[in-house]
């Protein structure tokens, strides 16, 4: 297993896409937090800040608005692409045979990929959030305590959410052996497919009374992990709690990972 971890560690550091995706994620975090900090500073300086104005501002800052529960984390999607490439490059460039002749244990290679990529994206995600928080602190320290207990809690949930998203993207890539297909699906699923579900449940009369089941859609559940604006009454109630969101989204991820492992273990390289 240690050989596989060393291999994956070398692999992830020696490929250009890892660095430009990491750089892009940090740049996006920097840009959004500077923008939010500057706008907030400008507005609060003129009009002052009410308690309502600064509610959830720390989590908003560190997650680039993902803590609003309305949009997915752009940083999360960028670093998840590192996971897509972890499997995608193996199949797109015929590396899988070289990998499996260098490492003759499929379980070890499979596990090492998920572990190393998870560590990488967790660290990048944490750095992006800390950097965003510090920028927010510089601009808004007069009106808001950015790093309060709620923010630290959201940072933890956001790291978990990003790792799960990355694993889901990796599992999907390993299943389809197509990074292009995985890239399309991983963006269309939350942005289009789940929105279409929402639309169907509004437009189709027979479904209107059952809109509460939509809370179990994977990416709707993922957003609940960091949503600080809507309080949950129970773990799996409407809406889901952060734990409920993690269980649903994590469950989908684990199922896809298990399927990807079953196929990887038995199909031809």
């Amino acid at each position: 297993m240690s050989d596989a971890l060393r291999y994956e560690w070398a692999r992830i550091r020696t490929i250009r896409s890892t660095w430009w995706l990491t750089g892009s994620a940090l740049a996006v975090a920097l840009l959004i937090s500077v923008l939010l900090g500057w706008v907030g500073h400008h507005d609060f300086s003129r009009n002052g800040a009410s308690a309502e104005d600064v509610e959830g501002l720390g989590p908003f800052l560190v997650t680039q608005f993902a803590a609003s529960g309305q949009i997915p984390s752009l940083v999360g999607f960028l670093v998840a692409m590192i996971g897509i490439f972890a499997w995608g490059h193996e199949y797109r460039h015929g590396m899988i045979r070289a990998s499996l002749t260098a490492l003759n244990s499929r379980p070890a290679l499979w596990t090492a990929k998920y572990v190393v990529v998870a560590l990488w994206v967790a660290v990048v995600s944490l750095v992006a959030m800390l950097m965003s928080g510090l920028i927010g602190l510089v601009y808004l320290h007069r009106w808001v305590t950015v790093f309060d207990s709620q923010t630290w809690s959201v940072i933890g949930w956001q790291m978990l959410s990003t790792v799960l998203l990355t694993w889901l993207a990796m599992a999907f890539t390993a299943l389809t052996r197509s990074q292009a297909f995985a890239l399309v699906v991983i963006f269309l699923w939350p942005l289009l497919i789940e929105s279409l579900f929402n639309l169907f449940f509004v437009l189709v009369p027979g479904l209107r009374g059952h809109q509460d089941v939509l809370r179990f859609l994977p990416f709707a559940s993922q957003r609940r992990m960091v949503d600080v604006l809507t309080d949950a009454t129970s773990t799996f109630g409407e809406p889901l709690s952060a734990v409920g969101g993690a269980v649903v989204f994590g469950g989908v991820t684990v199922v896809l990972m298990a399927a990807s492992y079953a196929l990887f273990a038995r199909r031809d390289a």
Binding site: T14, I15, R16, S17, H89, H93, G94, M95, R97, A98, T101
Partner: peptide, 11 residues
């Protein structure tokens, strides 16, 4: 086993 068993941008 492959004609080019490597990633094209990895040195």
């Amino acid at each position: 086993l492959e004609a080019k068993p490597f990633h094209p941008t990895r040195k």
